[in-house]
Amino acid sequence: MSITVTTWSLEQTSPADQRPASVPDADIRIVRAEVPSPEFSRFLYTAVGGDIHWTDRLGMTYADWQEWLERPGVETWVAYDKGTPAGYVELQAQDEGAVEIVYFGLVPAFRGRRIGGHLLSYGVARAWDLADRWPGLAQTKRVWLHTCSKDGPHAMDNYLRRGFTVFDTKVEEEEGDPAAPPGPWPGAGI
């Protein structure tokens, strides 16, 4: 089966573009996962993306995850609600001062509680000051990301509210069944 997927690429080209969300009325802490942990990163990836068709990293081996997480300028920031992982944002430094928000999202049980805007705001701020934590990296000149029609229904609105603007749109056919996301682990129900 083939599905039509629209992918939008968005960017900020100045720290002044940021429009932070309000802090939610909850016990939310956002902490950088400083020790590369393939197990934890794969957990976050599948817990957040299992119901919205994130599949591109499912075939990565332990060594692939370790290699990715040890790259200079790759950071994972995790939002915790009363000590429970609620979502994450993953950053990657790229050439010429670009920083990509590679992954961002919330575990389904934490969606709709105003955590996403706060986490995205925090992650964008960490993208703009990434070089401060990684000597030798260029200062950030651009923060960018992409989202697609398979992502959550509020994703695009959250990005636009945080000050991102669309710079590219692509429409492609992909193999897949829109009614059958992989879930957080094999055999798991959504």
Rank of each mutant, 00 (worst) to 15 (best):
G59S: 15
L91P: 01
I52V: 14
A93H: 06
A155H: 00
D157I: 02
G49H: 11
G83E: 11
D177S: 12
D51F: 00
C148G: 06
M60L: 15
A131G: 04
H118I: 04
R161M: 01
G163S: 03
P135Q: 12
R114Q: 14
D81K: 10
L120F: 11
H118V: 11
P85W: 12
R133G: 09
V74P: 04
G187W: 12
V166A: 11
P153T: 03
D132G: 03
D64Y: 12
I115L: 12
A47Y: 07
P181H: 10
F110I: 01
K141F: 05
G117L: 04
F110L: 04
Y88S: 06
N158L: 14
D51S: 10
G176Q: 09
G50P: 01
H146N: 14
Q92R: 13
V171T: 15
A125K: 13
T84K: 15
H154E: 07
Q92V: 11
Q92W: 05
G49K: 05
F167P: 03
K150E: 05
F104C: 10
P153V: 03
A180W: 08
K150I: 00
R126G: 03
L58K: 08
Q139A: 12
T84F: 12
E175M: 02
Q94F: 09
D56G: 04
L69V: 08
R113T: 02
E67L: 07
W144V: 06
G73E: 12
G123L: 14
W185E: 14
A125T: 07
P184F: 11
L91A: 07
W144M: 09
D95P: 07
E100G: 08
G117K: 06
E70H: 06
G187Y: 10
A179V: 00
T61D: 07
E96P: 00
A188P: 01
W128G: 09
E90G: 00
R161T: 00
D81R: 14
G136N: 11
V107H: 15
H154T: 04
T84H: 15
E100P: 02
Y62C: 09
A109L: 06
L130M: 08
A109D: 14
W128M: 10
Y88E: 10
P184K: 15
Y88I: 04
E96K: 15
S121T: 08
D56A: 08
A79V: 07
G73D: 13
A93D: 06
K170D: 08
F110E: 02
G116I: 01
R133T: 12
R71L: 07
G183C: 09
G59N: 14
A180R: 15
V99E: 06
F167G: 02
A125S: 06
M156D: 01
V78C: 08
A180G: 00
P85K: 08
V74G: 11
E67F: 01
Q92Y: 00
D177T: 05
A138L: 12
L145F: 02
R111D: 03
T165N: 06
S121D: 04
Q92M: 07
L58A: 08
T140Q: 13
C148R: 08
T169R: 15
D157A: 13
V78H: 11
P85D: 13
H118T: 05
E96A: 15
D51R: 07
Y159H: 05
D129Y: 02
Y159K: 01
W144F: 15
V99F: 08
